[in-house]
Design a protein around this nucleic acid. Sequence first.
DNA 1: CGTATTTGACCGGCGC
DNA 2: GCGCCGGTCAAATACG
Length: 230
Amino acid sequence: MFSQSLFEDQDMSSQLGFFSFPPNNYNNMGISTTTTTTTLPFIGYNQTTLKMIPPSFAPSSHHSLNIDSTPDPRHKEDLTTSLFGGPHLLSLQKSTTNTWVGEVNESINIKRREFDHDHLGVSSIKMKKIKSSRRKVREPRFCFKTMSDVDVLDDGYKWRKYGQKVVKNTQHPRSYYRCTQDNCRVKKRVERLAEDPRMVITTYEGRHVHSPSHDEEDSQASSQLNNILW
DNA sequence: CGTATTTGACCGGCGC
DNA sequence: GCGCCGGTCAAATACG
């Protein structure tokens, strides 16, 4: 159901945010933002843009990340990668102990794996502080790609469409949805991948302030999706 | 008739 | 400053 993500090295800053980085409350506090460099295929802030590195060095369940020391330990704690472009590793995040917990896609099953810090080695992420600046708050965002002939996947939430746009160099329009719940400002975008229209890219922005509203019974697709998303 | 969707207008950010 | 482009608004329309 979930296939690996493969994106070219191009500016997809407005379209893709595989994970939020740094967390938006940093911006609220007006303290530094973070820039990242990496040889791994993930998206991070690079000054004002998000950038995707080609997936040729995709991490797998056998080798993953080494996080370099960072001036601010909080950055480390908050570093959460999601949905790597690699064949197996979907996400990696620091647990409360000094270990890393990742989600590994083994065939169709999503499994939780612990990664020994000492064995996180193949590449490194370097983080450095850049000049302090107040920037528009960016809600946490992430996206994933699904092979599907329906555009809007049942994720347990109710959405209202508020826009549709044809984006440059694509033949398929992008649709914009908002969560219908009062006071919940979560949005999502749905589009088809230009290179492979069988693939649906769903991008979520923000956090729900409520739990999913299931008016009908869970479909299997929905609960599968929920296991990964929430 | 109330609610959801459609779709052109509008707006703001960004690059030149 | 201007034009392009992505994101949002909102009036018109569709739908149940």
